[in-house]
């Protein structure tokens, strides 16, 4: 009981100020070194990380749905195998990330509760539907591509368990992006219908993918603190620019058009210019008024609730085995 009570206190209450711990933390950040779970850390740093890491985990888990939608209908056995492996990777990413967040003192059950009650956020991109097979290509190329731009710098994030989880995740994401690109390339060079399917899908995913980097820097209130703590390394706008610079030449190779007439190489800046994004759309989806918010959450809630009896059975069986082995030892 004592340990449970202690755990509860460290969850809910502000940790007492620890001057030596604070000094050590500040030194680690200043030297750009890793903070580990046993180190003292400011409460706000811990909360920021729990929010970010659990949101990332939730995004992986909800993100399984739009692609899972095509597992039963994938048009070739090879594509079906790749898609299954990819969606399974996402479950694995969710698991690493929940584990990383648990090292900060938040149990997985609590994070799951927050997700299915709608309290916790996940990436809005997964609130868009996947009506066509080409969406498997667009998600890989654009959504995973944007995720990589966001996530590669996180491999150097100051919190050790998060940074280490991101190293493995980024390796797998890079494979995911290439397979998405390959799906689109094959469609684009395929029949007329396949080419049109690819173009129509890219038209739908381009702007939502660019919004994955978050609002423009001027409207992103938490960014500065995260950058000071070496959690975030580049601003939203910097990352978005990097992404656009990456995909414009790739779209040319694909033979597909990005749906933004303002895209143009800017010699002076050494970057591609691109048009304004519709941020009203972004905030609409964020507020729960996207095309699939209710569907995604309901599906996760249903899986969780319908699985309750299985988890209870597993727990009861484990307890039964524990009691049996204690009896055997006592005998």
């Amino acid at each position: 009981m004592a340990t449970a009570a202690q755990r509860k206190r460290s969850d809910d209450a502000e940790l007492p100020e620890d001057p030596a711990g604070r000094a050590h933390f500040d030194e680690l950040i200043a030297a750009d070194q890793r903070v580990e779970p046993t180190d003292w850390m400011p409460d706000a740093y811990r909360k920021t990380l729990v929010r970010q890491v659990s949101q990332h985990a939730h995004s992986e888990i909800i993100g399984m749905q739009p692609e899972g939608n095509w597992i039963t209908r994938a048009p070739s056995l090879k594509r079906k195998a790749i898609l299954m492996a990819k969606v399974q990777d996402e479950a694995g990413h969710g698991l690493y990330l929940y584990s990383a967040a648990q090292t900060l003192g938040t149990p997985r059950d609590k994070m799951t509760e927050d997700l299915i009650s709608g309290k916790a956020k996940y990436s809005s991109i997964f609130n868009y539907p996947t009506p066509t097979w080409a969406d498997m290509g667009s998600i890989g190329w654009l959504v995973d591509g944007a995720a990589i731009c966001n996530q590669v710098p996180l491999c150097r994030a100051s919190y050790g368990p998060y940074a280490r989880a991101m190293v493995r995740i980024c390796k797998e994401e890079s494979f995911h992006q290439r397979q998405g690109f390959e799906i689109l390339l094959h469609l684009s060079r395929g029949t007329k219908e396949q080419h049109e399917m690819a173009q129509e899908s890219v038209n739908r995913w381009y702007a939502p993918a660019l919004m994955m980097f978050g609002p423009p820097d001027a409207d992103s209130p938490n960014s500065a603190q995260s950058m000071a703590w070496n959690i975030k390394r580049f601003s939203n706008d910097e990352l978005r620019q990097r992404f656009v610079d990456m995909i414009v030449p790739q779209a040319e190779v694909l033979g597909l058009t990005l749906p933004d007439p303002a895209i143009k190489w800017n010699e002076e800046r050494g970057h591609y210019d691109f048009g304004e994004l519709d941020w009203d759309e972004f905030y609409e989806v964020l507020k729960g008024r996207g095309p699939a918010n209710a569907i995604r959450l309901e599906r996760r809630r249903t899986a969780h609730e319908e699985g309750a009896w299985v988890r209870e059975a597993a727990a009861a069986y484990a307890e039964r085995r524990r009691v049996e082995s204690e009896k055997a030892q006592a005998a």
Partner: peptide, 8 residues
């Protein structure tokens, strides 16, 4: 996949 009783 994405409907199981737990992530594992």
């Amino acid at each position: 996949i994405a409907r199981a009783p737990e992530l594992e």
